[in-house]
Design a protein around this nucleic acid. Structure first.
Length: 437
RNA sequence: GUGGCUGUAGCUCAGUUGGCAGAGCACCGGGUUGUGGUCCCGGGUGUCGUGGGUUCAAAUCCCAUCAGUCACCCCA
């Protein structure tokens, strides 16, 4: 068999990276649960029509087909791998509406798949950590303000560069554009979204072409607004555009920003040029910048959706956000900006005097493990220097020497070289398990 | 999916007009049976991403492909 090569877009971490990932996931999970989100996992596949219900992403969906499928199977249910966690969740809510309590808060940490061209921080298979709150019939807008707080808690507790959550509101933009007499707000959103890449003059030209220079100027002026507090409201008002939807959007966005300002200053910034995210969002939209990694795009996005989960008269509006865990970690790993205090779980290596005395070392290891201390026994009764080096090479901080002749059991800290009697010894708290740094 | 750049040892890289594949670090063994890191001696550990082609001869030139990366597209 020839040596296998990596598959583009399907990242696989090294053990120490996976260790870091698990630490991150543990912390995310803990934070989500602190806010009362329940864990949930949905199947990897959805019926294709469910996935494509909201349009444009069809080319990104991986479909599932049996190798031996015949033409007769073709009209069977065709399945696709989910490309996010919100669509499957919406389906799950409809399916289980009778068994769930509303408002329903859940978190979901799973792989998703998108058939896109991979690049730095962009994968075809990646891990998302998603939280959502859905309610029946109506969803109070204070939940739109709560979501960023959860994410702020979760991400700011990690040893990573500071994040800023950029928030906008689709009603605000749509109302503004409609107030200007523009019929197709979606189109303007798409053009404005390119602002940072192509520059204001290109955006202006593109809008002006269809809607005239005055409207183009107004759209650009709106896109230029950004504030950490409700001061953006006045700036929007100054532009003199009137529309009921605009008023709604402004009020909702102001509430989000002000709530965040009170609970987590500096976390959230109203940024009226952002428009990205899946097209099912209807209100607040979120995007998250990681300081120093802005060019690689948002590491955490989401928004409010009013029409994603509905069946007949039942409507379940929701709001949610998803951390791109793989993107976040991939970028940080590459920049050498996130690692773990040691690359193995093992805290103690028990030395081995001879193969005959392996049982002695095994007993020591067992009693350490019983105390919650990750322990392994040396692979072979090599010279002590080699056994110590074995521990050192793999980052195991302590070597335990079983009693030998006159000498009692002793433990050596490989990093300092300090060696003490093992009686009553325990590793310091920070060495019990690998920690993020 | 479209276009550009890159691919040599575990890592960072050198390799001339096509002529026996190299350096530093890392790693492995030894320095006379028990305590690593310093030091000394020894060792190259490689399908030159992969597959074809041109040639007496290809890491080097040509084609394809895979992977990484950048710009589009889109987005976590």
């Amino acid at each position: 068999m020839t040596r296998p090569t990596p598959l583009s877009g399907f990242p696989e971490w090294l053990p120490e990276q996976r260790l870091a990932e698990q630490q991150v996931l543990d912390r995310l999970r803990r934070t989500f649960e602190l806010y009362g989100f329940s864990p949930l996992e949905t199947r990897a596949v959805e019926p294709l029509d469910q996935l494509l219900r909201k349009g444009e992403t069809s080319k990104e969906v991986y479909t599932l087909r049996r190798l031996q499928a015949t033409d007769d199977d073709a009209d069977e249910l065709s399945l696709g791998l989910h490309f996010d966690l919100t669509v499957p969740f919406a389906r799950y809510v409809l399916e289980n509406a009778g068994k769930l309590q509303f408002p329903f808060r859940r978190y979901q940490i799973q792989k998703v798949w998108r058939g896109e061209r991979p690049a730095a921080g962009r994968y075809r298979e990646f891990l998302q950590a998603d939280i959502d709150i859905v309610d029946r019939d109506t969803l109070p807008s204070h939940y739109e303000a709560e979501i960023p707080l959860v994410i702020g808690d979760a991400l700011r507790a990690l040893p990573i560069p500071p994040v800023t959550i950029l928030v906008n509101n689709r009603k605000l933009c749509e109302g503004f554009y409609r107030g200007l007499g523009i019929e197709d707000p979606e189109e303007i959103l798409r053009i404005v979204d390119k602002l940072d890449k192509v520059g204001p003059s290109v955006v202006k030209d593109e809008i002006a072409q269809k809607h005239g220079e005055a409207r183009a100027d107004a759209c650009l002026a709106l896109a230029g607004i950004s504030a950490q507090d409700a001061s953006f409201v006045d700036e929007v008002r100054k532009l003199g555009v009137e529309h009921p939807l605009l008023d709604e959007g402004v009020a909702e966005l102001a509430a989000v920003v002000e709530t965040a300002r009170e609970h987590s200053p500096g976390l959230v910034r109203a940024t009226l040029k952002i428009a990205r995210g899946l097209d099912y969002y209807t209100g607040t939209v979120y995007e998250t910048e990681l300081a120093g990694f802005e060019q690689f795009g948002s590491i955490c996005s989401g928004g409010r959706y009013d029409n994603l989960a509905s069946a007949g008269k039942d409507v379940f509006p929701g709001v949610g956000i998803s951390i791109g865990v793989s993107r976040l970690l991939g970028l940080l790993f590459k920049a050498d900006a996130l690692s773990v205090s040691r690359p193995v779980p093992t805290a103690v290596l028990v030395a081995l005097w001879s193969e005959e005395e392996r049982a002695v070392s095994n007993r020591i290891a067992a009693s350490l493990r019983a105390r919650g201390i990750a322990t392994e026994v040396a692979p072979a009764p090599a010279k002590l220097g080699k056994q110590i080096r074995h521990a050192e090479r793999r980052g195991i901080p302590f070597v335990w020497f079983p009693a030998n002749g006159e000498n009692p059991d002793q433990v050596k800290d490989i990093r300092s070289g300090e060696q003490v009697d093992a009686e009553g010894w325990a590793p310091p708290a920070e060495d019990i398990a690998p920690t993020l740094r």
